[in-house]
Every structure is written in C-alpha cells, then in structure tokens.
C-alpha cells in the first residue's frame, strides 16, 4: 500500500516542478503515478480525468483528489490536494509580499512559447499511451474517434459528452454475464 509520505512527496514534486499549464500537469502526473510508481493502471488514470471533467474546478486538481482517495481514502485525498497546492501557494504569497512585479516580458514570453510548443508533443504522447491501453478493440477505437470528432470539430461541450458517454455506456457497454459457451 502507498504510504502517505510517499503520496505527499510525489504530489509536492508535481506541484513544485509542474510548469506549462493544466495539460502539462496531467502529463507529469501520468508519468509519476502510472509509469514510474505504477500506483494506477492507465484505465484508472483515464477515469480520474473523467471525474475531473465532470466536476467544477481545475481538472488536474480534481484528478489528484480522486487519485489520493483511491489510494489512501480521505486522508490520501487531503494529502494530495494540499501537496499539489502548497509549493505554488508559498511562491505566490512571497511574490505578493515582496511586491515582485510579474509581467509578461520578452524573456518570459520566449520561454513560455517554447514550453507551450513542447506541451503539445508531450501531451500527444500521453494521449496515445493512455489511449492504446484504454481502447483495445476496433469498436472502442471507433467510439474514441466519434468523441474526438464531436469535440474537435462539432464543439460539443466536454461535460455533455462525458455524461452522454456514461449513460450510453451504462446500458450498452455493461459486461453481460456469459450464459453459455458453445465449443466446436
């Protein structure tokens, strides 16, 4: 079982070193929690993003709470949430206290532009890895494509998509107990 200090250290690391916006944070979390420590399967990780999409507030933060709860109950959720926020909270308070002027100067913008381009490739690799583990048969791949087209080209609200997919799946994708297997 995952210990609370391990959980705290991992999410402090994500909170302290996770630059580049929400999707870069998800990519870093996937690396730490799924690939490196194997605390969750790819499917369980995808689920936590689904929960994050369904709830108000930052998707990454909601996913972190869900993962913490899944691994260590309420205490785990609290530890993950606090560890995620603490590093940047301290930094923000220091910036505010010292009246450090933060503005978008040319240096910051140049670095941000490079990071933003990097996040595209980084996140694509996470989607392919997670997708390969989640959609294994051709019917699943087809449904992923439908969801992709609905959001990317028809601008369907992601929240609506998730709710519809959940309702449809509850009926159409529920595992049916095998009554009989016919062997030749």
């Amino acid at each position: 079982m995952v210990s609370l200090p391990q959980l705290a250290l991992t999410f402090l690391k994500i909170g302290a070193l996770g630059f580049g916006g929400p999707f870069s944070l998800l990519a870093i979390m996937q690396k730490e929690v799924v690939e490196r420590r194997k605390w969750l399967t790819a499917d369980e990780f995808t689920q936590s993003i689904g929960i994050g999409t369904m709830t108000p507030g930052p998707i990454f933060f909601a996913a972190a709470i869900f993962i913490g709860y899944r691994l260590r109950g309420i205490l785990g959720a609290v530890v993950c949430g606090l560890s995620t926020l603490l590093p940047s909270f301290i930094l923000v308070v220091v910036i505010a206290t010292l009246y450090i002027q933060v503005e978008q100067n040319a240096w910051v913008m140049a670095i941000t532009r490079g990071v933003a381009a990097g996040v595209v490739g980084l996140f694509l690799s996470v989607v392919l890895k997670t997708g390969r583990a989640t959609a294994k048969d051709s019917r699943s791949v087809a449904l992923v494509l439908v969801a992709f087209v609905a959001v990317a080209f028809f601008k369907i609200d992601p929240l609506l998509l998730i709710v519809v997919a959940g309702l449809a799946g509850a009926w159409l994708m529920r595992p049916v107990p095998k009554i009989q297997t016919v062997e030749k």
Binding site: D43, V127, L143, A147, G169, M173
Partner: peptide, 14 residues
C-alpha cells in the same frame, strides 16, 4: 459500463 463509456470519451476529448 458507464466508466467504460466515460473512459473512451475522455480519450477522444484529450
């Protein structure tokens, strides 16, 4: 079944 549907939708969304 619901989670299966949600997971596939999430991959498409991402």
């Amino acid at each position: 079944g619901a989670m299966r549907g949600v997971n596939l939708a999430v991959i498409g969304l991402l």
